[in-house]
Amino acid sequence: MSQELTRMLDTLTKDIAGAKVTLKRARRMRIDVDADALPALLELLQGRGSYVHLSAISCVDWIDDNQFELVYHVWSYESNSLVSAHTRIPRDPGVYLSIYDLYKPAAFFERDIHEMFGLYFEGSPSMEKFILTEWEGPPPMRKDFDAEAWVRDTFTERDYNPEWLKELTDAGGGIAIRPQDIRK
């Protein structure tokens, strides 16, 4: 079954230059493809390979290679297998094509990736903010955004010692542990 699938995908992708099909395990296939050939590959997978369900689009920031990796997970309800199409695009300028005309669910994932990674998808129905509506900073899921440092720079730490707590503590109550209660 898995061999048949690999054969089917090999024939499907034979016209796509640079496409490499790997069988990862049962029902999981991986195809590595160049960025400019990916829409054609997905069109073939959908139209001739029955991969009609776009499960997700994942983005990985490979900052050391200065690249974004986009992974399109498509599922076939007929052959019950998942193809993950991997492609890499340069981090700068970070612009890619939308696949909304092939898969409608792409609208959400592309919008999400745009918001979290700052990658722009040409032709996507909406690139407006969705989750981080009031966020002005850089796209937070990029590897060069350090959330902890941002918190340190933005907020000041303050000791919390209100009068009422001091009174309680002095009286030996509240959150303080009385000396006789300390376990030896």
Binding site: L132, P140, A147
Partner: peptide, 17 residues
């Protein structure tokens, strides 16, 4: 128009750390 983000806690970023 759906409007989300009120429950965003940044789990994916938190998990990387």
């Amino acid at each position: 128009h759906a409007d989300g983000g009120y429950l965003h806690r940044g789990f994916e970023k938190l998990m990387e750390g």
